[in-house]
Nucleic acid binder design. Structure first.
Lengths: 351, 351
DNA sequence: CTGTTAGCGCTTTCAT
DNA sequence: ATGAAAGCGCTAACAG
């Protein structure tokens, strides 16, 4: 009865051949208005769900897709996003995609400019953007708009741009979540240490701003009496951090909880461990290799994951489905937030 | 260079035809030892990864797969497992599987016996078992072993059986997790209420036993001074629960935290809400519709998910890959444990 | 036992 | 502009 509809069925119903239906489905042109309208009418009536895997079998076209993110090392956050992207290409192994990676130094705006400049001229069918520098991203995107090249954001979006879609955590909610958790696991009204990344030269890191806003909003809505103490911290000069931390803890003796809203939490948890400060609760972000180790050892109490593999996977999958089938796309895609503890870390599945 | 290996390639390398390779791959017989050995040798050398989606295109065979679980209503735990199973069938839409569901009343051992009896005689290629009654399951499985019908457990496994695989939470770890969380969010040494399901006639519910063991082990290892207070509770006679609960809270005035290790937590959270007991923390299990509602309203603080959709999805997927390709199977598959809060519940993805 | 062939749903080339 | 036909990787029926 409700058997699967195939192209052949549509062709028969519209009184044309399968070739013509295919031409309509893919906007390939060379179709008379009459034929096109007839086919479109049938397509509206029936529930035709093309099978990507079957399509890919005969698809000859090559797709050229560029991906730009900050540089990353093994086990880091951005690597997971790339792994997710690769996973899509693996799942659709028959689709011929040329996949070009452009990475930049996320602590050096000049590096980003240079790379984005190169991307601006690069010939491609679509672009996946992992963004950190706001202004440069806006510039890049306007170039893409001009060239009519679709792009998808991962990790976070930029309001001023018009991406095909974005896949990211709801960073504001991440902040609220962390606030909820840290106030739940520390005594009422505790002082809370908040790691404050010192980013040189750039005012961006919009994600962190959103997270902090969520964090402070939650605290004030709850009328919590917690005092939030900022701990300065530098990613580009890691040698300074030992000093930052010891300075902080010298001045603040009673800090039962610390939250880190970037992925470098293990630096703090290592410090705490090395200095035998084992009753400070820690909530950190992202399942990087060092963070995972710290959770396993009990140095980090709760780790928040933002499904980076998932983000990459769906960004690429959405792109392919859009490119190949013009499949309609949901613009805003907030990913699941994972809360990991020592007990659950071993069972965390990336794929 | 490392181009995808196809059957045709293997055929050429082994000096046989594609048909023969296919016969070897699927143990279809009618292959001389010489040919078989030649093909097997090549297969060991190259990395041949058959494409299920392509296979399914030409697969004519029908697979008859039975699934047995407790009865379930909309939004309940077991429904999610069935949804996961259906999702596999959806993904492999071209594979012809006849899918038979047998449900029994998990609070009535006679119902279970009757259904399992029927399954024992049912003709099928494989079976997925969602188990609650231990002894009847062992009996059913030994029958399956006899008939050489492979079976996979979901939700939990039974040690005495020899399933092809099982997909479940590590229930012992679930108990430890809940213990960690409840002691983290309640003051040190608090009394903790533990819902104790009264199951009539059967000593099983092995999952609950494991969870409780994990829970108490954690507490004693941590030398926590928490006292655990049991709250009797009946699923089969829900009308008694109001009485159970009010009786409990009459006798115990200071219970800052309650944990529920089955999926009926919302019954308690509703009671607490209706009686204005809003500073009792609650940790419950499973993302059933009522539990999700309770989390959204803040009546449940933490909800533990055991990825039932994932369990069902992979159980069926594993089964198909095994039946069709004899793909090697990992027996023990512990699923990811999700911790859900008010902030993250909206972003929880089942699929 | 084994190679050949047709065909699954879809795309693309090639005549018309 | 369009239908027919070939072919993607794989399976299954068929003819030896």
């Amino acid at each position: 009865m409700d058997k699967k509809i195939r192209i052949k069925d549509i062709a028969r119903m519209a009184g044309v051949s399968a070739g013509t239906v295919d031409r309509v489905l893919h906007n390939r042109g060379n179709v008379s208005d009459d034929a096109r309208i007839a086919v479109e009418k049938i397509i509206e009536q029936v529930d035709y769900r093309p099978n990507m895997h079957v399509s890919s079998l005969s698809l000859k076209r090559r797709y050229k897709i560029a991906v730009t993110t900050p540089q990353y090392s093994s086990g880091a956050y951005w690597e997971s996003i790339h792994n997710g992207i690769k996973h899509t290409l693996d799942e659709y192994e028959n689709i011929k995609v040329e996949y070009h990676v452009f990475t930049y130094n996320q602590y050096d705006i000049y590096s980003c400019r240079e790379v984005f400049e190169k991307i601006s001229r690069f010939e491609m069918d679509a672009l996946i953007i992992g963004t950190t520098f706001r202004e440069e991203t806006i510039k890049l995107c306007s170039k893409m708009d001009e060239r009519q090249i679709p792009y998808i954001f991962v990790d976070s979006s930029v309001d001023e741009c018009k991406p095909l879609a974005f896949f990211s955590a709801d960073h504001y909610m991440v902040g609220r979540l962390i606030a909820n958790l840290i106030t739940s696991i520390t005594p009422k009204g505790s002082n809370i240490g908040l790691l404050q990344a010192v980013r040189t030269g750039d005012s961006s890191a919009y994600t962190t701003i959103l997270r902090k806003k969520g964090f402070t909003d939650y605290l004030s809505e709850m009328k919590s009496m917690n005092q939030v103490l900022k701990i300065p911290f530098s990613v580009s000069q890691p040698e300074d951090n030992e000093r930052h931390l010891s300075h902080f803890f010298k001045n603040h003796k009673n800090v039962p909880g610390i939250v880190v809203m970037n992925s470098r939490g293990s630096i703090v948890s290592d410090y705490l461990y090395n200095n035998n400060m084992d009753n400070v609760k820690m909530i950190c972000m992202d399942l990087t290799t060092p963070n995972i180790e710290a959770v396993k050892k009990g140095h980090i109490d709760l780790l928040i994951g933002q499904g980076p593999e998932y983000q990459g996977f769906y960004a690429m999958k959405t792109l392919l489905e859009y490119l190949i089938f013009k499949k309609p796309v949901t613009i805003q895609n907030f990913v699941q937030l994972d809360i990991i503890t020592k007990e659950t870390v071993d069972y965390y599945k990336s794929f």
